[in-house]
Computed example of a mutant assay.
Amino acid sequence: MKIAIATVQIPFITGGAEYLASNLLRELTERGYEADIITMPFKWYPASSIMDSILSSRMIDLTEVNGVKIDKLIALKFPMYYVKHHHKVTWMLHQHRQAYELWGTEYGDLDKMEDGSRVKDIIVKNDTKFLAESKGLYTISNTVTDRLKKYNGLDSIPLYHPPSNHKEFYCNDFDDYIFYPGRITEIKRQHILIESLKYCNDNIKIVLAGALDESYKQKIQSIIKENRLENRVVFVGFITEEEKRKYYANALAIYNGPYQEDYGYVTLEAFFAMKPVLTHFDSGGPLEFVKNEHTGFVMEERPEELAGKIDFLYKNKHKARELGLNGKRLLEELKVDWNYVIERLIT
């Protein structure tokens, strides 16, 4: 069986979506399917560029290659889930969020573009129409499923999948630092974590791994400087997967407090490493796994409240261990594994 994985990519940027596509390709190949990833470059500005991408995706022919039929299409991202195919299954990472839950927020941009309102309406109309063509409509989380129902009236089934190399995560100790790996940017809200340090026990530090967005750097640096936190916030930049697992293994807890995340590998990686997760009531995807006082703590996006939970774990490391173990057990109960995902996508 020939399977095409259809997605988009912003050139020179690799993130969770790219890892998911690669992992899906590997899992399909290991099970004997002939699969390949087919990508389209995506540019979201100006608003007219989005219209060009929508038109392009409808014109792409993925029914056959070299005269041989492509048996199934698994579409992952907007607007490649518009591609026409006789056996299209959509496993949605997310829609174009700027037209939905980010519209009108501090994290949105389409609402601030010329002709943005018209393009937003076109996206919603096309999503509702063309996603309904799918023989199976799945998402990566309940959060994405709920959005589809709320904005488009479409029913879908969430399929949880594990992060890369999930079996290699482990727990070693509970040292005096909070860890976060990933892009350091406004919507991930690491500034809340950093600001919480001024209310925390002086022994607690923060370790951040990943690229720091230039647009976010001044805000982060100002908080650190104003509160004299230079020796307590550690930026380790890009690290290897082995180094990342080591940081997880020895962290006191993991912070994952984005605004309306779709899924969030950080939460799952934390639980595979048996570490508790700190998040917020409006963080989206992480809330599907972080159960307050059972696998971590859920709170308002207030640095003082976050500091209180961190200090509690610092004084009660046995509780941190208990919460982390509960997280690992939860993933097992939810069947966060590839066998279940592939079975549903291929059926």
Rank of each mutant, 00 (worst) to 15 (best):
Y160T: 09
I70V: 10
S56Y: 12
L110M: 05
Y160C: 04
Q95D: 08
P158K: 13
L148I: 10
H87A: 07
K129Y: 08
S53V: 11
L102W: 05
T90V: 13
M92S: 01
K77N: 14
L93C: 08
P79C: 08
L110E: 06
L148N: 04
L73R: 10
G104P: 00
M113S: 05
I157R: 13
V119S: 00
L110T: 00
K77T: 08
Y107M: 03
V144P: 03
I60C: 07
H94F: 10
T145E: 14
K150Q: 12
W103I: 00
T105N: 03
I123M: 08
T128S: 15
E133S: 13
G153S: 01
I140D: 04
S141R: 13
W103N: 02
V144T: 14
I123C: 07
I140H: 03
L76I: 07
S117P: 10
T105A: 06
Q98A: 13
S156I: 00
L76S: 01
Q95K: 11
A75E: 01
L131D: 09
D109V: 10
D52Y: 13
T63V: 12
D52S: 13
L93D: 07
T145R: 13
E64M: 11
Y107V: 10
N66I: 09
K125A: 15
T90W: 09
Y138R: 01
E114T: 04
L159D: 01
V89Y: 02
S57C: 09
I70Q: 06
T128C: 14
D111C: 03
G136M: 04
N126D: 11
S141H: 12
Q98S: 13
L148Q: 03
L55H: 13
T105W: 01
E106W: 05
R118A: 14
F130K: 11
L159R: 00
S134D: 12
Q98F: 06
V65C: 14
R147F: 01
K125G: 07
H86F: 13
S134F: 02
L154W: 12
M59E: 15
V124A: 07
G116T: 00
D109T: 11
K150Y: 06
K84H: 14
S134Y: 02
S56K: 14
E133H: 14
G116H: 00
Q95F: 10
I54H: 00
R97A: 14
S134G: 11
K84L: 13
T143H: 15
L137I: 06
N152P: 06
E133N: 15
S53M: 12
H87W: 09
H96G: 05
Y81N: 09
L73K: 10
H85C: 04
M113W: 02
H85R: 07
E101G: 01
F78I: 03
N142M: 12
H85I: 02
K77C: 10
V83N: 02
M113G: 05
N152M: 08
Y160F: 11
Y160S: 07
I70D: 12
D155M: 13
R97V: 10
A75Y: 09
K150E: 14
A132E: 11
S57Y: 09
R58M: 15
D115Q: 07
L159W: 00
D111K: 00
